[in-house]
């Protein structure tokens, strides 16, 4: 069996020095991907469905206190801990380096959710409803997930798919910046940059070479495709 290969390895760079924590990406993701609306009770129970969250950490004490923001989405690990534990291949890896989630296959063991060190997988504990006419907003490109299945950030795979089809229709590769997930597209400060890590000239590939780069929980050896750039200073000059 031949391994499939791909000219793409999608990745993202999150520049924490640019990130202001405003939350635009969170709503963009929710709007793009038919992410369920969760009420107060649901979030109180720890069942928020957001695929992308901004973590806020307090460091130090008043008056020398700092707040640090960390947008966390699926890291699309090259060695994703969620993949091998799924008994039904609902969590799988595609040749573009995306960590996919096939809702139809999912039986809801939630093993992947446990084994994801980044805790970015959300489970449909509830059977979510969109009161009419809010359901008009639901995007036809993306499944509305039924109860009992796991879901997570896909790097807006529907957009990638569209861009790849457009490109292959024109007999070329997807150009840098041609496709962006909703979060990166909307980020006012351009803290999120998406692109093809396999192309050394792409913007992400250039940013990844920054000395400020790091990856979340790097010691676990998951090799995420999401790179972070450390906040530059944030201390007194």
């Amino acid at each position: 069996m031949e391994k499939q290969t791909s000219p793409y390895r999608w990745g993202m760079v999150v520049d924490l020095d640019r990130c202001t924590g405003c939350g635009a990406c969170v709503v963009a993701c929710q709007a793009e991907n038919n992410v369920a609306i969760c009420g107060k009770k649901e979030i109180a129970e720890g069942r928020n469905m957001h695929w992308l969250r901004i973590e806020r950490f307090w460091v130090g004490e008043y008056p020398n206190v700092r707040a640090r923001f960390l947008p966390v989405l699926c890291q699309h690990c090259r060695d994703a801990p969620c993949e091998p534990v799924c008994p039904v291949y609902a969590s799988y890896h595609n040749p573009d380096g995306l960590n996919g989630q096939v809702y139809n296959r999912c039986v809801g063991t939630r093993y992947c959710g446990n084994n994801c060190p980044y805790a970015v997988r959300v489970f449909n504990f509830y059977s979510h409803q969109w009161p009419k006419p809010l359901d008009n907003q639901l995007s036809p490109d993306i499944t509305v997930r039924p109860r009992g299945v796991m879901e997570k950030c896909t790097f807006c795979v529907q957009r990638i798919r569209r861009a790849k089809e457009d490109a292959s229709g024109e007999g070329r590769l997807v150009r840098d910046g041609e496709v962006q997930p909703a979060c990166a597209q909307t980020c006012p400060a351009e803290a999120l940059v998406f692109g093809n890590l396999a192309d050394p000239r792409s913007r992400v590939a250039r940013l990844v070479r920054s000395p400020r780069r790091f990856r979340l929980l790097e010691h676990l050896g998951t090799h995420p495709s999401v790179y972070y750039l450390k906040g530059g200073g944030r201390e007194h000059v």
Binding site: M1, Q4, Y92, H93
Partner: peptide
């Protein structure tokens, strides 16, 4: 696994 291969990133079939 051999007869019904599933692509799983860089892991062996």
């Amino acid at each position: 696994a051999w007869l019904y291969p599933v692509q799983t990133g860089e892991k062996p079939i």
